[in-house]
């Protein structure tokens, strides 16, 4: 049984009907089989139609879909010989960030990403992918190994944001994020970032200074969550904001891969299988692997001095204003 989002209901009904027919027919009744084929085609069209006009809020829900592939899944599907590394060497190990050394299509790489966790128990253990300062410090420590051993760095972004808590503030959440931004500009090895789900504000950007910033088709990347933005900007006295305001905020913030490509914030959109990454892990990983390999090949041929200069220029030129 799949987990369906509200706007998928028409297609969900159809797919449940197909399942039922399949069980009844058991592959023998030719009449039912052709009926199933017809319905499957209809379901595909319906799904394609729904997914071709997703609103930013619907994309937000897909980006957070409980079955969406996570960093751990991409490591399994795309990498070999993964050696997980732990700890920031200063305070502790943050399970909201996962990282280590691996082999990607015969190239040794460093891989670091947010990990939200799958089961309830694991989600709690990984703090729903919301890192503490030690998570960011661990991330940069592992990335530094990439520089030392001349391995490109791949980072995967998937977080609601940096964790807002007492310990996080005590141990310098702001400093930890700032330091990652700072250090990633000096990192003398290629860096590729892929936003695979939710790119939540500074807690996402702290892994996102890269030579190439890519986004999956239905992922989002935002300065603040639509809910957070709505609560601040759409709140009238004494009324609570709800889905309607979340929709307005997610429209206004321009958080989709398509918007951000237009705004020049990201370099490429990686297409997802029909119905979203969670419908076909393997297909998604294949699609991502191809794009990663292409950029990795380009970046590995670029001399490091030029690479760093271009990384600087890429971010230096971001922003829109009137100079007069």
């Amino acid at each position: 049984m799949h987990y369906y989002l509200d706007f998928e209901r028409p297609v969900a009904e159809l797919e449940n009907k197909i399942e039922e027919l399949k069980r009844l027919a058991d592959g023998r009744d030719m009449n039912i089989n052709s009926e199933i084929k017809k319905l499957e085609k209809k379901a595909r069209h319906l799904r394609a139609d729904i997914f071709s006009r997703l609103t930013p809020w619907q994309k937000t829900l897909i980006a957070r879909h409980p079955e969406r592939p996570h960093t751990i899944d991409y490591i399994k599907l795309l990498m070999e010989d993964f050696i997980e590394l732990h700890g920031d060497r200063k305070f502790s190990d943050d399970p909201a960030i996962i990282g280590g050394l691996a082999r990607f299509q015969d190239i040794p790489v460093v891989i670091v990403g947010h990990e939200k966790g799958r089961s309830t128990k694991e989600r709690i253990q990984r703090n729903f992918g919301q890192p503490h300062p030690e998570g960011y410090r661990k991330a940069i420590r592992i990335m530094r190994l990439g520089e030392r051993f001349r391995m490109p760095v791949i980072t995967l972004i998937d977080t609601p944001g940096a964790y807002p808590g007492i310990g996080a503030e005590e141990r310098g959440q702001a400093e930890a994020i700032a330091n990652n931004l700072f250090e990633m500009f000096n990192l003398r090895t290629p860096i590729i970032t892929v936003v695979i789900g939710e790119g939540g504000s500074g807690g996402a950007l702290a892994l996102g200074v890269a030579d190439r910033v890519l986004m999956l088709e239905h992922s989002i990347y935002s300065v603040i969550s639509p809910e957070g933005c709505a609560a601040i900007l759409w709140k009238k006295d004494n009324t609570n904001v709800g889905q309607q305001e979340y929709e307005k905020a997610s429209d206004a913030l321009r958080i989709t891969a398509q918007d951000l490509y237009e705004l020049g914030i990201i370099d490429e959109i990686i297409p997802e299988p029909l119905g979203g990454a969670h419908r076909d892990y393997k297909g998604m990983a294949e699609s991502m692997g191809k794009v990663l390999k292409k950029h990795l090949d380009q970046l590995r041929e670029t001399p490091l001095d030029i690479l760093l200069e271009e990384r600087y220029k890429k971010f230096r030129t971001m922003g829109v204003f009137k100079k007069e």
Partner: peptide, 23 residues
Amino acid sequence: GARMQEGMLSLVQMAKTSAVIAR
């Protein structure tokens, strides 16, 4: 903090200002 009304264009200013400080 970052200005919500400019969306991601605001967020990336964090990277930009950190980059120039790195230099």
